[in-house]
Design a protein around this nucleic acid. Structure first.
Length: 276
DNA sequence: CGGGTTTGACCTGCGC
DNA sequence: GCGCAGGTCAAACCCG
């Protein structure tokens, strides 16, 4: 299962990494570990993160991205929860059964007992170098929680989109390895337009900024070319329900004010048949 | 006063 | 079964 998912990831350092050889000191590998696990378990993601963090503790402190002689400022990973029969998936059904309602926890339990299928949310994550934790992405977010993260001095903050009936969430935390890096994880897709009062930012791929288009019929690998001296790519993972993405740059230098503009390098999709 | 943030409590899943 | 850690809730608080 792991390998099956993992091959969808491509290291921005222009070499394909296997999970075994990952150096967690490399933020990208960190994200790979993290979000590949999350493919299988939305809720388990937290623990995956923990594992990644723990792993990085024990690994050598090799500078991030040193292998390409470039200094990317961010690393992105994209995943969607997949259709699956794995255990963790079942386990997390309870929590996300509340789709479409603000039902109580009791209600959730009841729903779970009914065996309703959980709606799995797409996830999208990336790291950005930024002084500010909460990046301006055009949407309004309401903070609903904050938790200390094990092995990290930096807390993780939880945000929900304030738009009615929009269930998109995002988690923001600072990398404990490189405090200048902010890890942002989006969960779910906005099904509404950007608030009209907010100027459309340039930070995110368009699929994050508009009502979601239908998912492609087959897997894609998303490559994003970095302008200038970035030789190769980064990448978002592909998955069955990967959405079409365009104008998408995972390597972003975030200004201190957190508002990104004029940062939309070309991106393209490489379509490849996916073999199981 | 409305909306957002803070924060402690609670729930849940996982590993041992 | 227990403890731990992540995720969420919601009351209290803050601010414009």
């Amino acid at each position: 299962m792991w390998d099956h998912e993992f091959r969808n990831f491509h290291c921005p350092t222009d070499h394909t990494c296997s999970r075994v050889s990952l150096s967690a000191a490399d933020p990208c590998s960190y994200m790979r570990s993290n979000f590949t696990d999350s493919l299988q378990s939305p809720i388990g993601y937290g623990r995956s993160l923990e594992k990644a963090l723990a792993f990085s503790h024990s690994s050598s402190s090799q500078p991030p991205f040193s292998s390409v002689g470039a200094t990317p400022n961010s690393c992105i990973s994209y995943s969607s929860t997949q259709d699956g029969s794995d255990k963790s998936n079942k386990d997390c059904q309870l929590k996300e059964l509340e789709d479409g309602s603000e039902s109580s926890k009791k209600g959730n339990k009841l729903a779970n007992k009914k065996g309703e299928k959980k709606h799995k949310e797409t996830r999208f994550a990336f790291m950005t170098k930024s002084e500010v934790d909460l990046l301006e992405d055009g949407y309004k977010w309401r903070k609903y929680g904050q938790k200390a993260v094990k092995n990290s001095p930096y807390p993780r903050s939880y945000y929900r989109c304030t738009t009615q009936k929009c269930r998109v969430k995002k988690r923001v935390e600072r990398s404990f390895q490189d405090p200048s890096m902010v890890i942002t994880t989006y969960e779910g897709q906005h099904k509404h337009l950007l608030p009209t009062t907010v100027k459309r930012p340039m930070l995110f791929p368009s699929f994050m900024l508009r009502p979601s288009p239908p998912p492609p019929r087959r897997r894609h690998e998303l490559f994003t070319r970095m302008p200038g001296d970035m030789n190769n790519y980064q990448v978002a993972a592909s998955a069955d329900s990967l959405m079409f993405a365009e104008n998408f740059s995972p390597f972003l230098q975030v200004p201190d004010n957190g508002l990104l503009q004029d940062m939309v390098p070309s991106a393209f999709l490489k379509h490849e048949p996916y073999e199981q």
